[in-house]
Write a protein that binds this DNA or RNA. Structure first.
Lengths: 218, 218, 218, 218
DNA sequence: CATGAATGAGGATTCATTCAT
DNA sequence: GATGAATGAATCCTCATTCAT
């Protein structure tokens, strides 16, 4: 439809062209997202994504060069969210902080559900694997930095390798949502947070931090 | 073929029929295994598996009804091995015990490589998910039992939920091999074992157990 | 495409979408029809039908779920035509009437050629058999009704079972075209009509009906 | 197993070699026959035929060059039986004679069931079609000869074409078993025989022949 | 001769992607 | 830009036939 036509019809061009296109693109991303989660990447067809977004098959290919690119775009938007957030140490009660962080992380994961699609791709798409690894490394670095600072303040265990601590923290955070499949249906983030705190801080530090916090609250 | 002929030819090349069939089946399993790891489950075709095993496409279907069944057969063989082994607590230095267990587990994982294929299936194959979950639950129960006994002996933290501890232990064991992607190329199992010990035993218990062990060795 | 463009290009080559689709569907039906006759149903592949219709294999599956459905569509169109037409009795010279009917029936059969495909299916497709049987029963009832009326007017043999007469009539009509394979290359419908008349009407009735007709024509 | 071995075992070679082979061949023919009827020619596999006959797949090909040849052999054995038998005219009550013949024919047909397989082949196997046509022509000639003799004795209609009469007779005989699908579940051969008699003999001849017979019986 | 495992061409069907309208 | 019909390569799977034992 040309601009001229728009004017002839007499309607104010409510939505700028670009914006409408963006809208359609987003719709496709959303559809791809939902269907990938529902049926897996391989088992979702471009036609389905388009239909679910309410556009024609061909339109899909105007916005994405192929199915893989849609996935990659999804990831670019969301990969940051897939990463465990960076906790702030030594600020207040670390167990509560971690609990909140884990909950927030889990919520985002559920919103995206992308982790169900990822494994399918890990097996074959080298580029994808690298993108993911890079993102993870980024978070890793941030968390490690935080821990190092805590270490320098004498807050953490002296005799644990911080790399390993960081990795363990991330791993438990990442997989916490799966926990309920094994241990009943409630994922109690506080308990996971407590576990994590045991290998981050020695008992006396935890006590001290909790005391600090209580005092601060008074 | 008469008996006489048999003797002339000798019995060397005569592999019993059943054995040869088993051999071929194993060959196909091996090919499937390798290709699943190399290219992912979805991206491996029955034809490829057959070709890789040096047999015709049709032969594949003599031994397996389809690709999925081959995978299931692979799993039946290997699912136990995929599970983290059960550690013995309170027997000797727990860090060393755990380290050894983690190493053994990793070795098995690497031998199989199946864990690269598994996640892909978790996303869509309900039956598979259930099989795997059942196996995990089995291990979970065993580990939990061990921890409960340790708890009763006063060895573990009093204020941690044992379910969560068990799950954390399993999760770190299961994912330890991936650690190297993040923290350089060496997965130091001793460090992971130390981390695990921090959330299983309070510091004084660890010290005591290590002392016991040293004394025993003297 | 704007209206202006439409006018420049002219409307001649614009076949409405639906119509073109119908056209293609018809083309496929026609191809299926021809190939089924030429090579038999089992020996015709979907790919061949598509190629013969000048479209790609996939296009076949846009219009038909499979080969069987194409056949069923063919039959829905043609099954009525496959049935022997219903003769009118006691109106004029029955031999001439029958002759004309047989000729017309044969012509339709030849146009369709479907009867060469049908027997192949009778052997295995239960649903198909039922569809066909229902259609036949419909015709059977109509013919039987006509004969019963003729019977009540005293036109037919008193001592023949009308069911059997009806069935014989239908059978000869249906198979008349095959006659030439046995008795030379000309199927003389008048002779078949005469044979049929012998078991429908007693000789004196035939004479009377022919007389009536001659008088009417004078 | 060699003959020598047979002797060693001490059993009298009960069945001569050739005979045993013939037995196996017959078994295969029988299996093919049954399965073709049950599932159709195309849908019966060589493996199934062999299994049903209790022999190995390969054995099938020792006795028959291929599936088609087994069918041809079946036909050679049975094609004569598929043909309507030749009635004897003017000997006794023709209706009774025909009834008996039709019954006998139907029984044989049912024993063989081959007519359910034939149509599938008519569509594609030229040689098969010719074999069948030749057999039909043979029967046709025999029946025609009988009718011609009856004609010369003044027994038949003067004004009917004997070719057509012969063909009609064969057609009704051949399809009589299908009659029940249309007209209830009983195929009354006597009624079909009566219909046939009407177009073979004029009423006065029938009466006369029946009289002759009654007298002969007295 | 018998066996039945092995073969691989061939048929049915799907789906990522293109392109005429 | 939008459409969705068309494409055809690629997959799954079957089965007639061969051949080593």
């Amino acid at each position: 439809m040309s601009d001229r036509e728009d004017h002839l019809v007499g309607e104010f061009p409510l939505i700028p062209k670009q914006e409408r296109a963006q809208l359609k693109r987003d719709l496709l991303l959303k559809s791809g997202h939902e269907l990938f989660i529902l049926k897996g990447y391989e088992h979702t067809t471009a036609k389905e994504i388009a239909a679910h977004a309410g556009v024609a098959t061909g339109t899909f290919y105007r916005y994405f060069s192929d199915k893989r690119q849609l996935l990659m775009s999804l990831l670019e938007d969301q990969i940051e969210m897939l990463m465990p957030p960076e906790p702030k140490w030594g600020v207040s009660d670390p167990e509560s902080t971690l609990t909140a962080l884990l909950e927030a992380y889990d919520k985002r994961i559920k919103e995206m559900g992308m982790q169900r699609v990822l494994p399918e791709l890990l097996a074959k798409d080298k580029e994808f694997v690298e993108v993911l690894a890079a993102a993870k490394r980024k978070i890793f670095t941030r968390i490690l930095l935080g821990l190092t600072m805590a270490y320098e303040k004498g807050l953490t265990w002296k005799d644990l390798d911080l790399n390993t601590v960081t990795w363990s923290l991330m791993t438990l955070a990442e997989h916490a949502p799966e926990k309920m499949k094994l241990c009943g249906n409630v994922t109690d983030y506080r308990e996971v947070a407590k576990v994590i705190c045991r290998f981050v801080f020695p008992p006396e530090v935890i006590k001290k931090l909790q005391l600090d916090k209580s005092e601060a609250e008074e």
